[in-house]
Simulated scan of single mutants.
Amino acid sequence: MNDRLTALKLFVRAGRVGNFSIAGRELGLSQPSASRLIAALEDEVGTALFRRTTRAVTLTEAGATYLMRIDAILAALDEADHEARGTGELRGALRIGTSSSFVLREIIPRLPRFMMEHPALRIELLSNDRYQDLVTEGIDVAFRFGPLPDSSATVRKVMDVQRVLTAAPSYLDVRGVPTMPSDLAHHSVIIGPAHLSPTFSFRKDGRIASVRVDSPLTVTINEGAIASAVAGLGIAASSVNSARAELESGALVRVLPDWDFGSIEINALFVNGKATKPAARAFADFLLGELRA
């Protein structure tokens, strides 16, 4: 790997993690060597790419713009290398962004086979129940739920998953079992990322029923909503995937199972469009096959 290419890869990683030492270590470089390469790159480009303090390094405005351009170029180079090898072997780093619940329940249990098939690939899981910025966080593929805002990212639909209401048997023993959507007005409903609106809508036999619920508890992560429901704090809305283990164990039971609570769309987003990393496409294909199976 020549110095120029090494410097560009180092620059991108340092821009992501805000630390020359960490970025250098990932590329097998010492901290002094990493600092020298970045300084040489700045001299060659003709401008400062980083602001340096004793605690961290951050991108300048020029550095942020440069990173977006170089990231796309490195992705295209990765694609060319992959095609030239012709072996299907995946190398380098793959950054996957999605919700904490999806990482814990759907991705991590399926990772062993994928990583065994691609031992030279390094995977980074960035989990956050709030939307992640694919560009600034350097995410190669993100999995998102629900409607998507306008974006320059390439979108590929993965699947639709059913939304459900769940509650602990202990809660229902005390508060009673809802038989109609209107009954929810007299229950404690946990608001989480799967349903942020206090108005719930249902369908059954061509009818639409809507109810405004009382929400004494709001949580920002889906795992928190599920845990709260298991603890007997109320009725929680989630995707059926997110509550599958608890439903199968009996820790939670379905509420209003005869009413259609709608579904949530799962999409894969690729920030670089046609220059998407081969590893990002391969993982999306792998996960899509696993989920549909």
Rank of each mutant, 00 (worst) to 15 (best):
E246Q: 14
P278G: 08
P278T: 07
E265H: 01
S170Y: 01
M159W: 00
G262N: 02
A23E: 07
A245Q: 13
I107M: 11
L252A: 11
S201L: 11
L104T: 07
R156V: 04
R254W: 02
A275Q: 09
E42D: 02
N267T: 08
L37E: 00
T179Y: 03
S182E: 14
I22M: 13
P178R: 07
S35T: 08
T218F: 00
G46I: 10
V211P: 02
F143G: 07
V211N: 05
D183Q: 06
S197A: 12
E265A: 12
F270R: 05
S151D: 12
A75N: 13
E124I: 11
R105K: 14
P169N: 06
L41V: 02
S228K: 02
G273S: 03
K277C: 09
Q31T: 06
S210L: 06
V45C: 07
I235G: 06
L77Q: 15
R105D: 14
F283P: 13
D150M: 08
R244H: 11
R95V: 15
D214Q: 14
E117R: 04
G250V: 12
V177G: 09
K157W: 00
I96K: 06
L287P: 08
R36G: 00
A34M: 01
A75Q: 04
H118W: 00
R16I: 15
L125T: 03
A280V: 11
G28T: 02
V253C: 14
A39P: 00
R203C: 13
L8G: 04
L148F: 03
F114W: 11
A76R: 14
H118A: 05
L165F: 09
T47K: 08
L67I: 00
S182T: 10
A39V: 00
D260Y: 08
S152K: 09
L121D: 00
L8A: 09
S238R: 01
L10W: 05
G273M: 01
I264T: 14
L90H: 09
M180Q: 14
L104F: 01
A243I: 02
D78S: 11
G176T: 05
L247K: 05
S99N: 05
H82Q: 05
L10I: 07
E290T: 08
S201R: 14
D140I: 03
E89Y: 03
F270C: 02
N267R: 08
S100R: 13
A167I: 04
I22T: 14
D133M: 02
R51Y: 07
K157E: 13
A275M: 04
P257D: 05
I221G: 09
T136N: 15
L256D: 07
I123G: 08
G28R: 03
A293C: 09
V12L: 13
